[in-house]
Nucleic acid binder design. Structure first.
Lengths: 188, 188
DNA sequence: CACCTTGCTGCACTGAGTGCAACAAGTCTT
DNA sequence: AAGACTTGTTGCACTCAGTGCAGCAAGGTG
């Protein structure tokens, strides 16, 4: 990784942590982009070189995580049973990252209107899943769409139920349980 | 319905149609709130009395539709099999409204970045479903969350696959098929 | 060491969204 | 039907998100 790329990711992280800290303390509406930028030691204009919107600074996924998800999907090629396979990918993806999820969860508990912005985070996952589904030719486009959207629905459901002060491990089991319940076709 | 309420809904509709027409012709970014308001014959300030954001003018559900969905859910009380029941509600809800869906579909096909705003429309459905699920005590909160989020995932999937110039009836069958596929637990 | 490229910065600008204070029109009471 | 009350529109002024542009500094390349 080049020096440029290192610096860029460093600024990215500084902006994200500054944004989360400030919003956590003062609330989303009370924090301006100027505040975030100067807390991170960069100019306001630089903020928008890294994030398209103020909300994105809170919820855009770390580039490393995006790489990790792409890698997990890559290794899935020959698996036969699609839904459980997707489930295992999602479980692996969230495992060990409960702290990040907990922070976002707490922000949204404090200010529910942030939830709509948080959807874009799941949309990033969805895009990755869709890209992967497009490479598979062994099922029709509609089933592919259902698979990806339902998978993110499971993640969102687990996220919506889990409380920030719950047992972190519990979140992963929630995700797994969600995939299992749907695999069984919503038994009554 | 009082005269006031009639006038209010009239302005609401004028704003929504003006917004859709203008955005359809010139693109989302090129149309200002001023343009929409004056096309609808009201002041800019009035626009924001009816819609919280510019995007909401395109995608907020008609109040009549919200009432209709609430009514459909109300009549569901004693049904035993939850998932098919939710499916029938969703099918009934979209039946006969393919034209509205087609318009939104076309807008998003032209400008994919509008998709994120369209999610809020589904969020309104989701809120209604969640409110209903909260009144049922016969299943746990997590299953309730899964049910509602998965139901909207089906709607989103059908919406993402359907093309605006497809057979309108086809959309409803897509929704029904989605519920069926998930009921079967994603067979391979 | 020169040359090219990438990314940070300041500046100026558009336009979304909000609080406030009139004002007008619908609604209710007697 | 006339007054009091309520609800909703309007204009004004303001903050701030987001963008295009031009300059500059520092990284990358031969």
């Amino acid at each position: 990784m080049t020096i440029r790329e290192q610096q860029r990711r460093k600024i990215w992280r500084a902006l994200q942590t500054a944004a989360i800290d400030l919003v956590d303390e003062h609330g989303f509406a009370s924090v301006t982009v100027d505040d975030i930028a100067s807390a991170a030691g960069v100019s306001r204009r630089t903020f928008f070189n890294h994030f398209p919107t103020k909300a994105a600074a809170l919820f855009d996924p770390d580039p490393d995580d995006a790489d990790r998800l792409a890698y997990l999907l890559e290794r899935l090629d020959n698996q036969v049973d699609l839904w459980p396979a997707l489930g295992s990918v999602c479980v692996s993806f969230v495992t060990g990252h409960e702290n990040v999820i907990a922070v976002r969860r707490r922000l949204i508990e404090d200010e529910p209107e942030l939830d709509q912005y948080h959807r874009t985070a799941h949309q990033h996952v969805e895009v990755a899943l869709r890209r992967w589904a497009a490479t598979r030719t062994d099922f029709d486009p509609y089933t592919a769409a259902l698979l990806t959207h339902t998978a993110t629905a499971v993640l969102i459901s687990a996220f919506s139920i889990w409380k920030a002060d719950d047992d972190p491990v519990h979140f992963v089991t929630l995700v797994q349980r969600g995939f299992d319940i749907i695999a069984a076709g919503f038994p009554t």
